[in-house]
Simulated assay, not measured.
Amino acid sequence: MAPALKVEQTIQEWGNGLGVRITSPVAKAAHLSQGVPISVEVVKEGILLRVVGKPKLSLNQKLKIYDPSIHGGEIMNPQPIGKEVL
């Protein structure tokens, strides 16, 4: 099976290691986005990158999708209650 997209890139120094930039067309074709966990495996033919889970959401992303009617409807009480009243 032929690859859906093939590009040639150059390995470059990145800090104390080496890195390669995954360009936008390659990321889109592979369904990759920032934060997606991957495994890196050395195989006979070279290196294999494999998605191993779903991306972890940032706090801003979590707050953006938060809906009180779906997520329990909890809200902060503006009035002190319980033992925190002095």
Rank of each mutant, 00 (worst) to 15 (best):
L59I: 14
Q61T: 05
V20C: 06
L57I: 09
K56A: 13
K62V: 10
P55N: 00
M1D: 10
V85F: 03
E74F: 15
K64V: 03
T23Q: 06
P25Y: 04
I65F: 09
L86D: 05
V42K: 10
S69G: 15
A2P: 08
L18C: 09
V26P: 01
K56C: 06
V52Q: 09
K44F: 10
G35E: 10
I11W: 00
Q79K: 14
R50C: 01
E8K: 08
P68R: 01
K62N: 04
H31E: 12
L86S: 09
N60Q: 05
P25G: 02
S69V: 14
E45S: 14
K56H: 07
L32K: 01
G46Y: 05
E13N: 04
P68E: 01
L5F: 03
Q9T: 11
E13T: 08
L5M: 05
A2E: 10
V42N: 09
I11Q: 02
P68G: 12
L63V: 07
P55C: 00
G72Q: 08
G73K: 06
A4G: 13
A2L: 14
K56I: 12
E13M: 04
L18N: 14
Q9K: 13
W14S: 15
S39A: 15
G46T: 03
L59M: 13
V26G: 02
I70F: 08
S58T: 15
V36T: 15
V51I: 14
V52G: 01
L86V: 12
G46A: 09
I47T: 13
V52K: 11
V43R: 02
A27F: 09
V36F: 10
A30G: 00
V20Y: 07
L63Q: 10
V52H: 08
P37K: 03
L5S: 03
V85W: 05
K54P: 00
Q9H: 13
V26K: 01
P55V: 00
Q79F: 08
G17M: 04
I65Y: 10
H31G: 04
Q61C: 04
P25I: 04
S24A: 12
E41S: 08
Y66D: 11
H71P: 05
A4V: 11
L49P: 07
K44C: 04
M76Y: 11
I75G: 12
P25Q: 00
G72R: 12
A30V: 02
L5N: 03
V43A: 01
P68L: 08
G46K: 03
Y66F: 15
V85L: 07
E8F: 06
Y66C: 03
P78Y: 02
A27T: 09
A29W: 01
L63M: 06
S39R: 11
L49S: 02
V7M: 11
A2C: 05
I75N: 08
S24C: 00
G17N: 06
P68K: 04
G15F: 04
S58G: 04
P3R: 07
N77G: 01
L49V: 15
P3S: 05
G46M: 03
S33V: 01
E13P: 02
I65D: 09
G35F: 06
